[in-house]
């Protein structure tokens, strides 16, 4: 069973909102990915202070010198050095308000926090690169056949102990 939000939090139900919005616009209902059973909980093999952490972020972040994402089911990924200068980060996405992410990319790509956690010894290290993509991909088939295998291959090559997924 998936986890329901406690009533007192009064969270916005974006699935219900999208359904109502699409209905109003006359679109067919959007079919969200739905996994009835959660992915397995794999116990960590070492403490966080000795773990290598990989950052994967879907907010459309790229680095100056890289091609930007296009906005029609772009399943490509970017490898962004974890030594990147914040001033070299850019955002390309069609579906959220990028104002704050442009002023401080750490709101969707928390590289400074992760570097801080390494410097204070809370985590062991970061992989050489973070992986980014633009999450507004409406084809689950293309996600499974194109994006996920590439992400998986790139992650396997860097052999992190922990992967932090930051969606928008």
């Amino acid at each position: 069973m998936s986890d329901a939000a406690p009533d007192e939090l009064n969270v916005i139900d974006y699935i219900a909102q999208t359904r109502a919005s699409y209905d109003q616009l006359g679109y067919d209902a959007y079919r969200w990915a739905a996994e009835p059973e959660p992915s397995a909980l794999v116990a960590p093999v070492k403490p966080l202070s000795e773990s290598k952490v990989a950052l994967v972020a879907s907010g459309g972040i790229y680095e100056v010198g890289q091609a930007a994402f296009h906005h029609r089911d772009d399943t490509s990924i970017r490898r962004v050095s974890t030594d990147v200068e914040i001033s070299d980060l850019r955002i390309s996405h069609f579906a959220y308000d990028r104002t704050d992410a442009r002023s401080d990319p750490n709101v969707v790509f928390p590289i400074d926090p992760l570097r801080d956690l390494v410097s204070t010894g809370k985590i062991g290290s970061l992989t050489s690169h973070a992986l980014t993509f633009m999450g507004g991909i409406y084809s689950q088939r293309r996600l499974r056949e194109e994006l996920i295998p590439e992400l998986s291959n790139e992650l396997s090559a860097m052999a992190p102990d922990v992967v932090l997924l930051v969606p928008v």
């Binding site: 939000a5 059973e37 969606p167």
Partner: peptide, 15 residues
């Protein structure tokens, strides 16, 4: 990480 409870609950990640 999540800021969209229902979407995350639907995808059902381990943590």
């Amino acid at each position: 990480m999540s800021s969209a409870w229902s979407i995350t609950a639907s995808a059902n990640p381990p943590r």
